[in-house]
């Protein structure tokens, strides 16, 4: 089998080889453009997220896939589930809005809490931060798909496995003609 593996590549002429590289590029760019397209449609910088912790049980479990929207004209309301970023943390947090103050000019500040946590999120926010504002919000949960995200979680827990899978796919696409 290994004898055949690189034969296709060796026999290609210049144009066929360029096409092979470009078609690999197009697989990657298609995925990228779908993601960017979703960003534009939903208005959220990360339209799909995976729930990583059990802090929102029983609403969301670890491994659920969430779809987010972030339309600027929709106001944030108490009881909604928001995904927000906190300075100094890489991973966004999915929690429910607990208290909210809105001014006449439309600016809001709000406090969040995980359904399964016994205290609110002030301990999670950046040092000295008491409220979240609109700019911290990544999106609001609009729908979810249970368990699908477990794949992502396992992939991130075993990075070597992830890179092995990706490398195998890349080699297959690059080496196999059409």
């Amino acid at each position: 089998m290994w004898d055949y593996l690189f034969d296709d590549v060796k026999r290609m002429n210049k144009r066929q080889f360029i096409y092979q590289v470009l078609s690999f590029g197009m697989i990657v760019s298609s995925a990228l453009m779908i993601w960017k397209g979703l960003m534009v449609v939903t208005g959220s910088e990360s339209p799909i997220v995976v729930v990583l912790s059990g802090s929102m049980e029983p609403a969301f479990h670890r491994g659920d896939l969430l779809f987010l929207t972030n339309y600027p004209e929709e106001p944030v309301r108490v009881g909604e589930i928001v995904v927000f970023k906190v300075e100094g943390r890489d991973i966004p947090i999915v929690h429910r809005v607990l208290k909210l103050h809105e001014k006449n000019n439309g600016t809001v500040k709000f406090l969040t809490k995980g359904d399964n946590n016994s205290v609110d999120d002030r301990g999670l926010y950046a040092q000295g931060q008491l409220w979240l504002t609109k700019k911290d919000v990544v999106g609001r949960a609009r729908g979810f798909l249970p368990y699908v995200g477990m794949v992502t979680i396992y992939m991130n827990e075993y990075p070597k496995f992830k890179f092995a899978v990706l490398a195998c796919l890349a080699v297959y696409v690059l080496v196999h003609r059409e």
């Binding site: 144009r15 360029i18 096409y19 470009l22 590029g25 197009m26 760019s29 990228l32 453009m33 960017k36």
Partner: peptide, 25 residues
């Protein structure tokens, strides 16, 4: 090679557009 070159140009344009979007973002 005109026929295959045409296809290569289309592919290269598409990948270029995607890379540009990635860089700009």
């Amino acid at each position: 090679f005109a026929l295959i070159d045409g296809r290569l140009v289309l592919c290269a344009l598409a990948v270029g557009v995607a890379l540009y979007a990635l860089l700009w973002d």
